[in-house]
Design a protein around this nucleic acid. Structure first.
Length: 473
RNA sequence: GCCCCCAUCGUCUAGCCUGGUCCAGGACGCCAGGUUCUCAACCUGGAAACCCGGGUUCAAAUCCCGGUGGGGGCGCCA
């Protein structure tokens, strides 16, 4: 049974890099019919915050990434970590380092400064700890200390990465790792191994910044006698400047994308595509299908630049696919409360779903669907309503509209063009002022379609109202 | 410094394992044209890449070696 986990530390919001890692774990678990678990690595008490835990959970839920068992908090396992570290000590697989951190710093500077050869350095460090120089002889009398695991001095630590194939690291270059600090808390590499073993994790899927940690963790697994899981290291996600993605690159947090009007399935789709391609010629692949096709072995090795442009494009595709009713519901958070109505939202959806990029755009470009009190762009308004002739033209058009029985796109167009012809003017001289009158904007959907959707009463009302205003201006 | 990892259009990628069908395919973006009442969408077309150098081979984007470039790590941080 496949068991994977996402193990964020709650020292910041859920950002897209973390979300992608969670996503790949989730897709792998679902594809394999296994379990996806969540572990909060909250051992860094200084920096861990409850609000970040909430942000992470909310972000995952929003993306549709559900975890299967109770959330594990790393801090719950501290007793177990200590116990296992002491067990290794008893078995002679680890030893005590009695230096205080500051002392060790001094010792390193004094005795290890020029040493470049890592194997040699490792041996000297061990020597210095087990057999301190005269001035530190006294530390041997001390109780306790940090626990260091003995790392083999020869051979290579090897593992088969599901994405990269064989990775090998000379054991002699790995120093004896501290697994328990002198204050009794476990270090990261040790805690991860113990927790993963306790949770019976079978596949560790994480960012490739962890590749250098893996050989160390394997040493720990082996010392503990735990089965070593399989590893898969995902490439990093980079900002447009090819640097590791961070807050400097604009929105980096998952919930920020939600608040910008991105659909969760669009972000899911987009993130899944960063490092993997389900098809050679299809980009829009909904979550369920992604899961069915997911193959960890096909994941790329090279880092990917986060291109928000493409995210917006994918988002617009998903918006296009949705029904007006669903969009009406989805856009609610993005419309000021006093203006929101289900009817208005449905009109906005119908009018704009083929042209918007985010849910936010519905209000941004479609306020006139919700209220008569929409914003009128000054420049085009002045352009079309400073011509005194516009009043008579629109008065005639309004009369025609009033008598129009069948309020349909084609009939409206016929009426308007017919009127223009009789007046001996270009249709554009009616079209543009009407557009301003009913929407306040110089650009938007096809006018006749817009008039049909908005409805006869509203259209006439708005034309008359704007003329009223223009006369007074 | 040492160790590990990576390298196809501006960007995401297909192809690479199992050399020839690749003068390298798709998508975003960009440019041009079409449509049109506007902008977008849409349709059509276009520019745009195998990091460099050796080797193996009849044949290399694909295999091997070296270089260069980028990333990560070398903590009693995670």
């Amino acid at each position: 049974m496949v068991r994977v986990r996402f193990a964020p530390s709650p020292t910041g919001k859920l950002h897209v890099g973390g979300a992608r890692t969670a996503l790949y774990n989730f897709m792998f678990a679902r594809h394999e019919g296994g379990k996806f678990l969540l572990r909060i690595e909250d051992t860094d008490r200084e920096r861990s915050r409850e609000e970040f835990v909430r942000d992470i959970l909310e972000g995952l839920r929003w993306l549709g990434i559900q975890w299967d068992e109770d959330i594990v908090y790393q801090s719950q396992n501290e007793e177990k970590h200590r116990e296992l570290a002491y067990k290794l000590l008893d078995e002679g697989k680890a030893y005590l380092d009695r230096y205080l951190p500051e002392e060790w710093q001094q010792v390193r500077e004094k005795y290890l400064r020029g040493i470049k050869d890592q194997a040699q350095k490792k041996q000297m460090e061990r020597q210095l700890i087990l057999d301190p120089p005269r001035e530190f002889r006294h530390i041997l009398e001390r109780e306790g200390g940090a626990v260091r695991i003995k790392v083999p001095d020869e051979g290579d630590i090897q593992f088969e990465d599901l994405i990269r194939g064989k990775i090998s690291h000379p054991a002699a270059h790995i120093p004896d790792i501290v697994i328990l600090r002198s204050n009794g808390t476990p270090t990261y590499n040790f805690a991860v191994v113990v927790d993963d073993a306790l949770m019976k994790i079978t596949h560790v899927i994480r960012g490739d910044d962890h590749i250098p940690n893996t050989p160390k963790q394997i040493v720990i697994y082996q010392a503990l006698g735990f089965p070593v899981p399989l590893f898969a290291h995902l490439p990093m996600i980079l900002g447009p400047d090819k640097k590791k993605l961070s807050k400097r690159h604009g929105a980096a947090s998952v919930l920020e994308y939600r608040d910008m009007g991105i659909l969760p399935e669009a972000l899911f789709n987009f993130l899944a595509l960063l490092g993997w391609a389900p098809y050679p010629d299809r980009e829009v692949v909904p979550p369920q299908e992604m899961i069915e096709l997911f193959d960890i072995r096909k994941v790329n090795k090279n880092p990917a630049v986060f291109d928000s442009n493409k995210l917006y494009w994918i988002n617009s595709r998903y918006i296009k696919e949705k029904s007006d009713e669903e969009l009406a519901r989805l856009m609610k958070p993005f419309v000021p409360e006093e203006f929101y109505s289900e009817e208005g939202a449905r009109l906005a959806a119908k009018l704009l779903k083929d042209r918007v990029k985010t849910l936010r755009d519905f209000w941004e470009y479609g306020d006139y669907a919700f209220t008569d009190d929409f914003r009128i762009e000054e420049k085009p308004y002045r352009k079309y309503f400073s011509d005194p002739e516009v009043f008579e033209r629109l008065r005639i058009l309004t009369e025609e509209f009033r008598q129009l029985e069948e309020w349909k796109e084609e009939a409206i167009e016929r009426t308007l063009r017919g009127t223009a012809e009789r007046l001996g003017i270009k249709a554009a001289l009616l079209i543009h002022p009407v557009r301003i009158a009913v929407s306040g904007k110089k650009v938007g959907p096809s006018l006749f379609f817009m008039l049909e959707v908005l409805g006869k009463e509203r259209v006439i009302r708005r034309i008359e109202r704007i003329m009223e205003r223009a006369r007074n201006d």
